[in-house]
Amino acid sequence: MSMQLNYNWLLVLLSYAVSVLGSFTALQLAVAIPLAATQRQKTAAVVMAGGAMGLGAIWAMHFIAMLACDNGMDVSYDASLTALSALVAFAACVAGLMLVGSGRFDWLRLLAAGICMGLGVAAMHYIGMAAMMMPAKISYASGLVALSVVIAMVASTVALWLAFNLRGPLQMIGSALVMGVAVCGMHYTGMAAASFEDNGGQLPDGYAEGLRGGNLGLTIFVVVTILLVLMLVLHYWRQRYRSSISI
Protein backbone atom coordinates (compact mmCIF):
# COMPACT_ATOMS: atom_id res chain seq x y z
CA MET A 1 0.00 0.00 0.00
CA SER A 2 1.35 3.41 -0.99
CA MET A 3 1.80 5.88 1.85
CA GLN A 4 0.81 9.52 2.00
CA LEU A 5 3.51 12.10 2.87
CA ASN A 6 2.59 14.92 5.22
CA TYR A 7 4.80 17.96 5.73
CA ASN A 8 5.36 20.21 8.69
CA TRP A 9 5.39 23.52 6.80
CA LEU A 10 7.33 25.35 9.46
CA LEU A 11 10.17 22.87 9.06
CA VAL A 12 9.86 23.12 5.28
CA LEU A 13 10.36 26.89 5.52
CA LEU A 14 13.21 26.32 7.96
CA SER A 15 14.85 23.94 5.48
CA TYR A 16 14.81 26.69 2.83
CA ALA A 17 16.11 29.24 5.33
CA VAL A 18 19.00 26.96 6.30
CA SER A 19 19.73 26.31 2.66
CA VAL A 20 19.87 30.05 1.93
CA LEU A 21 22.01 30.68 5.02
CA GLY A 22 24.46 27.96 3.98
CA SER A 23 24.52 29.19 0.39
CA PHE A 24 25.07 32.78 1.49
CA THR A 25 27.99 31.85 3.71
CA ALA A 26 29.44 29.51 1.10
CA LEU A 27 29.16 31.94 -1.80
CA GLN A 28 30.58 34.80 0.24
CA LEU A 29 33.57 32.62 0.96
CA ALA A 30 33.69 31.41 -2.64
CA VAL A 31 33.81 34.84 -4.29
CA ALA A 32 37.08 35.46 -2.45
CA ILE A 33 38.69 32.43 -4.11
CA PRO A 34 39.93 34.43 -7.15
CA LEU A 35 41.64 36.88 -4.76
CA ALA A 36 43.70 34.24 -2.98
CA ALA A 37 47.37 35.14 -3.28
CA THR A 38 48.76 31.73 -2.40
CA GLN A 39 47.71 28.14 -3.05
CA ARG A 40 47.19 27.70 0.67
CA GLN A 41 44.75 30.61 0.88
CA LYS A 42 42.94 29.30 -2.16
CA THR A 43 42.64 25.79 -0.73
CA ALA A 44 41.37 27.16 2.57
CA ALA A 45 38.74 29.31 0.84
CA VAL A 46 37.59 26.42 -1.36
CA VAL A 47 37.39 23.96 1.55
CA MET A 48 35.48 26.38 3.79
CA ALA A 49 33.10 27.37 1.01
CA GLY A 50 32.63 23.71 0.02
CA GLY A 51 31.97 22.82 3.65
CA ALA A 52 29.39 25.58 4.11
CA MET A 53 27.66 24.65 0.87
CA GLY A 54 27.93 20.87 1.07
CA LEU A 55 27.26 20.40 4.76
CA GLY A 56 25.18 23.49 5.48
CA ALA A 57 23.17 24.40 2.42
CA ILE A 58 22.68 20.86 1.13
CA TRP A 59 23.14 18.22 3.81
CA ALA A 60 21.55 20.07 6.74
CA MET A 61 18.71 21.26 4.50
CA HIS A 62 18.03 17.70 3.37
CA PHE A 63 17.73 16.32 6.87
CA ILE A 64 15.62 19.21 8.15
CA ALA A 65 13.33 18.52 5.20
CA MET A 66 13.31 14.83 6.10
CA LEU A 67 12.33 15.71 9.65
CA ALA A 68 9.56 17.86 8.14
CA CYS A 69 8.24 14.87 6.23
CA ASP A 70 5.95 12.42 8.00
CA ASN A 71 5.21 9.20 6.14
CA GLY A 72 3.41 7.61 9.06
CA MET A 73 6.18 5.32 10.27
CA ASP A 74 9.30 5.48 12.39
CA VAL A 75 12.40 6.07 10.28
CA SER A 76 16.04 5.64 11.20
CA TYR A 77 19.05 6.43 9.04
CA ASP A 78 22.03 4.26 8.21
CA ALA A 79 24.99 6.10 9.75
CA SER A 80 27.57 5.21 7.10
CA LEU A 81 25.32 6.14 4.16
CA THR A 82 24.38 9.37 5.92
CA ALA A 83 28.05 10.20 6.38
CA LEU A 84 28.72 9.26 2.75
CA SER A 85 25.95 11.60 1.58
CA ALA A 86 27.61 14.47 3.49
CA LEU A 87 31.00 13.59 2.00
CA VAL A 88 29.62 13.48 -1.54
CA ALA A 89 27.94 16.88 -1.13
CA PHE A 90 31.13 18.36 0.28
CA ALA A 91 33.34 16.91 -2.47
CA ALA A 92 31.02 17.99 -5.29
CA CYS A 93 30.83 21.53 -3.92
CA VAL A 94 34.59 21.78 -3.46
CA ALA A 95 35.10 20.60 -7.06
CA GLY A 96 32.46 22.96 -8.44
CA LEU A 97 33.70 26.01 -6.55
CA MET A 98 37.30 25.26 -7.47
CA LEU A 99 36.28 25.12 -11.13
CA VAL A 100 34.37 28.36 -11.18
CA GLY A 101 36.69 30.20 -8.81
CA SER A 102 39.90 29.82 -10.76
CA GLY A 103 40.96 31.99 -13.66
CA ARG A 104 38.83 34.27 -15.77
CA PHE A 105 35.12 33.60 -15.95
CA ASP A 106 33.99 31.60 -18.96
CA TRP A 107 30.75 29.83 -19.77
CA LEU A 108 32.27 26.37 -20.12
CA ARG A 109 33.80 26.56 -16.67
CA LEU A 110 30.55 27.89 -15.20
CA LEU A 111 28.54 25.12 -16.85
CA ALA A 112 30.93 22.45 -15.61
CA ALA A 113 30.80 23.86 -12.09
CA GLY A 114 26.99 24.12 -12.16
CA ILE A 115 26.66 20.53 -13.37
CA CYS A 116 29.14 19.35 -10.75
CA MET A 117 27.31 21.07 -7.92
CA GLY A 118 23.88 20.09 -9.23
CA LEU A 119 24.94 16.46 -9.41
CA GLY A 120 26.38 16.81 -5.91
CA VAL A 121 23.04 18.07 -4.59
CA ALA A 122 21.18 15.23 -6.33
CA ALA A 123 23.68 12.55 -5.28
CA MET A 124 23.51 13.73 -1.68
CA HIS A 125 19.73 13.58 -1.76
CA TYR A 126 19.43 10.10 -3.24
CA ILE A 127 22.18 8.65 -1.04
CA GLY A 128 20.40 10.25 1.92
CA MET A 129 17.17 8.60 0.78
CA ALA A 130 18.96 5.27 0.46
CA ALA A 131 20.06 5.70 4.07
CA MET A 132 16.43 5.62 5.24
CA MET A 133 15.55 2.48 7.17
CA MET A 134 11.84 1.76 7.72
CA PRO A 135 9.27 -0.94 7.12
CA ALA A 136 8.64 0.28 3.58
CA LYS A 137 10.15 0.11 0.13
CA ILE A 138 10.94 3.27 -1.85
CA SER A 139 10.38 3.47 -5.61
CA TYR A 140 10.90 6.48 -7.88
CA ALA A 141 9.14 8.01 -10.88
CA SER A 142 12.02 8.36 -13.32
CA GLY A 143 10.68 11.49 -15.03
CA LEU A 144 10.50 13.42 -11.78
CA VAL A 145 13.93 12.14 -10.75
CA ALA A 146 15.38 13.47 -13.99
CA LEU A 147 13.55 16.77 -13.46
CA SER A 148 14.96 17.07 -9.93
CA VAL A 149 18.50 16.64 -11.25
CA VAL A 150 17.93 19.21 -14.00
CA ILE A 151 16.52 21.71 -11.47
CA ALA A 152 19.60 21.25 -9.30
CA MET A 153 22.02 21.74 -12.19
CA VAL A 154 20.26 24.72 -13.77
CA ALA A 155 19.65 26.59 -10.51
CA SER A 156 23.21 25.90 -9.30
CA THR A 157 24.58 27.30 -12.55
CA VAL A 158 22.44 30.42 -12.24
CA ALA A 159 23.46 30.89 -8.60
CA LEU A 160 27.14 30.59 -9.44
CA TRP A 161 26.76 33.04 -12.31
CA LEU A 162 25.09 35.54 -10.02
CA ALA A 163 27.73 35.09 -7.34
CA PHE A 164 30.79 35.42 -9.54
CA ASN A 165 29.66 37.87 -12.20
CA LEU A 166 27.51 40.42 -10.50
CA ARG A 167 28.52 42.92 -7.89
CA GLY A 168 26.51 44.44 -5.05
CA PRO A 169 23.37 43.23 -3.24
CA LEU A 170 22.10 41.04 -6.08
CA GLN A 171 25.41 39.22 -6.03
CA MET A 172 25.20 38.57 -2.31
CA ILE A 173 21.52 37.97 -1.70
CA GLY A 174 20.28 36.90 -5.13
CA SER A 175 22.83 34.13 -5.52
CA ALA A 176 22.01 32.68 -2.08
CA LEU A 177 18.26 32.77 -2.71
CA VAL A 178 18.70 31.03 -6.07
CA MET A 179 21.05 28.43 -4.63
CA GLY A 180 18.42 27.79 -1.97
CA VAL A 181 15.95 27.19 -4.79
CA ALA A 182 18.42 24.77 -6.39
CA VAL A 183 18.74 22.68 -3.26
CA CYS A 184 15.10 22.82 -2.11
CA GLY A 185 13.70 22.54 -5.63
CA MET A 186 15.74 19.42 -6.19
CA HIS A 187 14.85 17.96 -2.82
CA TYR A 188 11.11 18.44 -2.94
CA THR A 189 10.88 17.36 -6.57
CA GLY A 190 12.87 14.28 -5.60
CA MET A 191 10.46 13.65 -2.75
CA ALA A 192 7.52 14.00 -5.13
CA ALA A 193 9.19 11.33 -7.27
CA ALA A 194 9.35 8.89 -4.36
CA SER A 195 6.64 6.40 -3.43
CA PHE A 196 6.75 4.56 -0.13
CA GLU A 197 5.20 1.08 -0.23
CA ASP A 198 4.47 -0.67 3.07
CA ASN A 199 6.38 -3.97 3.11
CA GLY A 200 4.22 -5.52 5.80
CA GLY A 201 6.22 -4.37 8.80
CA GLN A 202 9.57 -5.96 7.89
CA LEU A 203 12.35 -3.87 9.40
CA PRO A 204 15.70 -3.78 7.59
CA ASP A 205 18.91 -5.03 9.25
CA GLY A 206 20.53 -2.44 11.48
CA TYR A 207 17.27 -0.51 11.93
CA ALA A 208 17.69 -0.29 15.69
CA GLU A 209 21.26 1.08 15.43
CA GLY A 210 20.32 3.73 12.87
CA LEU A 211 20.36 7.48 13.51
CA ARG A 212 17.08 8.90 14.80
CA GLY A 213 15.51 12.30 14.56
CA GLY A 214 17.11 13.34 17.84
CA ASN A 215 20.62 12.51 16.59
CA LEU A 216 19.99 14.34 13.34
CA GLY A 217 18.49 17.35 15.10
CA LEU A 218 21.61 17.71 17.23
CA THR A 219 23.92 17.36 14.24
CA ILE A 220 21.89 19.90 12.27
CA PHE A 221 21.99 22.29 15.21
CA VAL A 222 25.79 22.04 15.31
CA VAL A 223 26.10 22.58 11.54
CA VAL A 224 23.77 25.59 11.56
CA THR A 225 25.56 27.10 14.56
CA ILE A 226 28.89 26.73 12.77
CA LEU A 227 27.39 28.39 9.69
CA LEU A 228 26.14 31.33 11.70
CA VAL A 229 29.45 31.77 13.49
CA LEU A 230 31.30 31.51 10.18
CA MET A 231 29.04 34.14 8.65
CA LEU A 232 29.54 36.52 11.57
CA VAL A 233 33.31 36.05 11.52
CA LEU A 234 33.34 36.58 7.77
CA HIS A 235 31.28 39.74 8.08
CA TYR A 236 33.51 41.09 10.83
CA TRP A 237 36.67 40.22 8.92
CA ARG A 238 35.35 41.83 5.71
CA GLN A 239 34.48 45.03 7.57
CA ARG A 240 37.96 45.18 9.05
CA TYR A 241 39.59 44.42 5.73
CA ARG A 242 37.50 47.07 3.97
CA SER A 243 38.48 49.76 6.43
CA SER A 244 42.12 48.73 6.34
CA ILE A 245 42.56 49.18 2.59
CA SER A 246 44.72 52.19 2.03
CA ILE A 247 44.12 54.43 -0.93
Binding site: R104, N165, R167, Q171, R242
Partner: peptide, 9 residues
Amino acid sequence: RDYALGAKL
Protein backbone atom coordinates in the same frame (compact mmCIF):
# COMPACT_ATOMS: atom_id res chain seq x y z
CA ARG B 1 37.00 48.09 -1.33
CA ASP B 2 33.73 47.44 -3.14
CA TYR B 3 34.13 45.34 -6.26
CA ALA B 4 37.02 42.92 -5.83
CA LEU B 5 34.97 39.90 -4.80
CA GLY B 6 34.05 37.72 -7.74
CA ALA B 7 35.51 36.52 -11.00
CA LYS B 8 37.60 38.54 -13.43
CA LEU B 9 35.26 39.89 -16.09
